[in-house]
Design a protein around this nucleic acid. Structure first.
Ligand SMILES: [Mg+2]
Length: 323
DNA sequence: GCGACAG
DNA sequence: ATCTTGTCGC
């Protein structure tokens, strides 16, 4: 029964930006809060930097009072404005907050933390635990068709690509759509999975830029996608995080979850494959020490982001050249 | 003070 | 990821 509840809430359309700006509006005039307190109200203190980022791209500073968000040590912090933090100080003083030398006097007295929130990131963590339970390490081991995915970004727009190899045939697809979730460490799947789902065509293996079970809750983007699309999947990341390494094997809480197959290339199983199988599979499909479908997907999405998505036909021919 | 924080 | 308003632990 709990499983069926989880199935009905994949969070793909959840707009964290709107939810977040709603929280910022709760800060009363004459009070301040911190980036960390807002992150806690979202459900996880690790989101503090994402809070700063979302404030920085706020398009409506007249109704969303960014300037009431300050650093944990009582200094006012940054502000995107021609006048910079000076303008932040001016607005705080206009609210009656005493600021001396960029520091709020009697900080505790003015601090607001009583947000009305249901901490959405907590429910998302629970959903990740459900995804992790669905991971299976056994599968076919041989894959005829491979689909590789990557996503590039502007502030509120994403350009996502998929490159499919079926024997000697290569097809490439690009889509563009708005973004409803910022990058938050540990929550990448809630930002990127919906683009992968939209692009997805039947393939035996999904190759994904990010981690699989190499994740604090064993449910990185590649596992999230593999489980929800019921496909074999592998995560390929450039940076190692939140784990320990002995030789080239990566561990999380003493469980092997990935392999460093070279500097700046970490492979972890997403679904229907194990740690060694995922590393062997990626090693078989690289060209110049990089799995070529992923490289192509990366180039496709970045190129489309740079040109604003205008028809810059980066075509099948160049795909063949790279292969 | 410096590094960690998947993209 | 892009070029950017954090926080915590060592
Ligand atoms: Mg990427």
């Amino acid at each position: 029964m709990l499983g069926s509840i989880a199935c009905s809430m994949e969070f793909e359309d959840f707009d964290l930006y709107s939810y977040f700006y709603g929280l910022v509006k709760q800060i009363p005039e004459g009070y301040v809060t911190t980036y960390g307190d807002l992150a806690q109200a979202l459900g996880d203190p690790i989101a503090a930097r994402a809070v700063g980022y979302m404030l920085s791209i706020n398009e409506d500073p007249d109704t969303i009072p960014c300037y009431r968000v300050v650093l944990h040590d009582g200094t006012v912090g940054n502000y995107t404005h021609p006048l910079g933090p000076m303008e932040k100080v001016r607005r705080l003083r206009a609210d009656g907050i005493p600021v001396v030398d960029g520091m709020i006097e009697n900080f505790d007295r003015y601090r607001f933390r009583d947000f009305k929130t249901d901490q959405p990131l907590r429910k998302m963590q629970q959903y990740q635990e459900y995804i992790a339970r669905k991971y299976s390490e056994s599968g076919a081991g041989e894959f005829r068709t491979v689909a590789a995915f990557d996503v590039s970004y502007e502030e509120r727009r994403a350009f996502a690509s998929m490159v499919i190899q079926d024997g000697s045939t290569i097809e490439a697809y690009v889509i563009s759509d708005g973004i409803n979730f910022p990058y938050i460490p540990g929550y990448l799947a809630f930002r990127e999975f919906r683009f992968i789902k939209k692009l997805y065509r039947k393939a035996d293996l999904l190759l994904i830029d990010g981690n699989g079970i190499l994740h604090p809750r064993f449910a990185g983007l590649a596992t999230h996608a593999g489980v929800l699309l019921d496909r074999a999947s592998i995560g390929v990341a450039k940076h190692l995080t939140r784990s320990t390494r002995h030789q080239d094997i990566i561990y999380m809480q003493d469980r092997p979850v990935g392999v460093m197959i070279r500097k700046n290339m970490i492979v972890s199983p997403g679904n229907f494959i194990d740690v060694n199988g995922s590393a062997d599979t990626v090693r078989k499909m690289w060209n110049d020490r990089y799995p070529w479908p992923l490289k192509l997907a990366h180039q496709l999405s970045t190129r489309h982001a740079e040109t604003g998505g205008r028809v810059s036909e980066y075509s099948i021919e160049s795909a063949h050249e790279l292969h």
